[in-house]
Amino acid sequence: MGENNSNKTLVPEAANKLDKLKYEIAAEEGIELKKGYNGDITARDAGKIGGNMVKKMIEYAEKNMK
């Protein structure tokens, strides 16, 4: 079975901004993230962070499509 890593950042320059967004959203949700590995958070909390990141990215894209 071939590996397919879909977690690659397509625009490397955006990696720091995405990381910052992750921590901002975690703080908004009251989820404590530490630098580095956070495999001890629940799937529900990880989903909240990821889902809200996508929501904010879509909002940003919609605002800038004009």
Rank of each mutant, 00 (worst) to 15 (best):
K35N: 02
E24Q: 15
N16H: 11
N5A: 10
K63L: 12
E59S: 11
D45Y: 03
K8I: 08
G30A: 02
T9D: 10
K35R: 15
L18M: 14
T9G: 03
E32H: 13
I31K: 02
D19S: 12
S6V: 07
E24Y: 05
T9K: 09
E24F: 00
N16V: 13
E59L: 13
G47C: 08
N38E: 05
M53F: 03
M57K: 11
Y60W: 15
K34G: 02
N64G: 00
K48E: 06
E62T: 15
M57E: 10
A26C: 02
M57C: 13
N52L: 02
K22M: 15
T9H: 07
N52Q: 15
G47S: 10
A27H: 09
T9M: 05
K20I: 13
L18I: 13
A46Q: 12
I58C: 01
A15Y: 03
K34V: 01
A43C: 06
N38Q: 13
V54L: 10
N38P: 11
N16D: 12
G30V: 00
E13M: 10
E62A: 01
K17A: 15
G36T: 07
E13S: 14
T9F: 11
N4I: 13
A43W: 02
K63C: 04
A15I: 05
I25L: 10
E13I: 08
A26Q: 02
N7T: 14
M65C: 06
K55W: 11
